[in-house]
Write a protein that binds this DNA or RNA. Structure first.
Lengths: 353, 353
DNA sequence: CTGTTAGCGCTTTCAG
DNA sequence: CTGAAAGCGCTAACAG
């Protein structure tokens, strides 16, 4: 991309700190110190500068500031798909928090590709972002994260961090565990789990929680009941259909997100099984569909806003945190957010098969 | 926000264009001209510079470039709520297109507040964004848009632009008209319309299309059947409930988005009316809920990806478009995207009341 | 306490 | 065709 001065419509002449200094009758340096309170300034000078600044409607040029300080006032956020409503809501919360602190937010999609992620991280770093928030991405490499973290504050969202790395995680393990136990308590023993790629932390955790609950009851886990793939609706439809048609069909499904839920729901329609009479359903991640469906679908829910706020907060702290503190990784560490099962009408005891 | 050099973890020394020039054995100016192909350079020099740049893995500093050129390689996008899945998908498409051109995207939420919008626009402008994309916002003021447009390329999304302003619009008028006609053809005469604030272009257009269809049939419009307010689910629930309980109840609803649809659906549940036997339903804006609901809800749909792509494209053109062309507003103007009614199972002829 | 000065990395005249 | 030099607006170091 070549950089030339814009087609130049009429741009009003910028008010610079020079103008302020001149108007206040002080030197450039004094004006800067007064404006930033970054050094000794006499009361008189301070007043004069502030008044001049207000009169002239002076606003510092962030670009010039960046040039000088290496800081940008911008935070980069990378997720696999911004259009994923869960991410969209998290990011909204992040933006809200960052904005309060005067930071702008640049966002990018990685489409879950490691290469794309590296590209974007590089781009962002060039632009001198003051911090980075990274969502889960193909082949999580804590080492990669750690490497970036050495150069710029990073906080991970639902993604494995190396030792001492900062991150906010949803406790998918216990969420999955709780959901599975709930079904177990209802009497189900054949529970299908349809979740995301196990290469990603959330997927791994969910499978872990599921297995833990089963094993706790002394039940063997039938790997044929676990589907861990990218969330494609058609796929989940055919998968669910296949499972439901088997002799030893599952009597309950735990499915990730509305897309997979949709697939399963369609499979139910096709096989003429009813919810919850024939099959119980839990949706992982709440939303419009589970809430409004008839019957309403029991869901595993977590606070998206809290995820965003906590993530932003942690990053802010990492940015602000001068390593002056002897105890370097004081503010870091990982926050873990819990989930809860929202009981609705989609679960019941299994039918006698 | 104060700007000080970051807590300085180990930053690798930047490779500057100076280094490249030195390595290539040419002067700084020549290196710049070679890298940007922005002036005469001998073949030999060009080769040398390119090789040196590659060897040193030189990447220009966008900040310094901005400083010099007034350009930033960043585009600002402002919508009322990023968490609105419709916007999220549009923005994803925008980002995709912009990224191909090397632009980064900063996003912000206006929460539909004019003040907040102005604040963000100001912030973005200070950061020297090369272009702006603005979604609908409280109290649309084409004049405001026009004013901004004088200083930086702007394209509006579903929002009124002044004469000659650039914008991409969904044809909500005809969408609403088509939906209403469809219901009319089915025999409905009392059709409720629940849409967004009529201060916003989409809301206005929808009401217009609805009225046009009714009047075309010689039907009087009962303003009691039109609800134009912010999309709050509780509100739409009570509104729908009230309407359904009236003696002259509507036999069909056209409702905007899943939130309002949700409210109406709940009102239906409560009043024990069935879809589509007692009440027909059309959802404006497609999504998971209408698609997967049982019965599936007929929806008014439009291509979100196309909206995003077209918007980005138009902005790109406006940015690239040197006003060198005698015919200044050649590339501008407004693109209008059509909608279509996706027939599903939620509409039928009205019951005999 | 204050003014002056030196750049940050780059593009762009302007002389050679 | 090329090199030298100016300077975008700002902050930080240094001398007064």
């Amino acid at each position: 991309m070549s950089r030339t001065r814009p087609p130049s419509t009429e741009t009003p002449p910028r008010v610079t700190i020079r103008d302020v200094a001149r108007a206040a009758g002080v030197s450039l340096g004094t004006a800067s110190r007064a404006l930033n309170r970054s050094g000794p300034v006499s009361e008189a000078a301070l007043q004069a500068v502030e008044r001049a600044a207000k009169t002239l409607a002076y606003a510092p040029d962030p670009i010039a500031q960046s040039m000088r300080t290496g800081t940008s006032g911008v935070v980069g956020v990378l997720v696999s798909e911004l259009s994923n409503p869960l991410y969209a809501r998290i990011i909204t919360a992040i933006e809200k928090r960052l904005q309060r602190e005067g930071y702008a937010m640049v966002v990018g999609n990685t489409h879950n590709s490691k290469a794309q992620e590296e590209l974007m991280v590089d781009l962002f770093r060039r632009r001198r972002v003051d911090g980075l928030i990274l969502g889960p991405c193909e082949a999580e490499r804590p080492d990669y994260l750690a490497q970036i973290a050495r150069e710029v504050p990073v906080v991970a969202m639902d993604r494995d961090v190396g030792a001492g790395g900062a991150g906010v995680h949803v406790d998918h393990f216990h969420g999955s565990y709780d959901a599975t136990r709930y079904l177990l308590d209802l009497g189900h023993t054949r529970i299908a789990l349809m979740t995301s790629d196990s290469a990603l932390r959330p997927g791994r955790e969910r499978i872990g929680g599921y297995r833990a609950a089963l094993e706790e009851r002394g039940l063997a886990v039938d790997t044929g009941l676990i589907r861990a793939s990218r969330s494609a609706m058609d796929l989940s439809f055919s998968d669910a259909l296949a499972m439901l048609s088997a002799k030893d069909r599952p009597t309950a499904f735990i499915c990730l997100g509305t897309r997979i839920l949709s697939g399963v729901l369609q499979a139910m329609k096709q096989t003429d099984y009813r919810v919850p009479r024939d099959v119980s359903l839990i949706c992982v991640g709440d939303g419009d569909l589970p809430q409004l469906y008839s019957p309403a679908i029991t869901a595993l829910s977590w606070d998206l806003e809290a995820v965003g706020t906590a993530t932003a907060e942690m990053l802010l702290q990492a940015i602000g945190g001068t390593s002056a503190q002897p105890d370097a990784e004081a503010g870091a560490g990982a926050i873990r957010l819990s989930t809860q099962v929202v009981l609705r009408e989609s679960c019941a005891s299994p039918p006698a098969l």
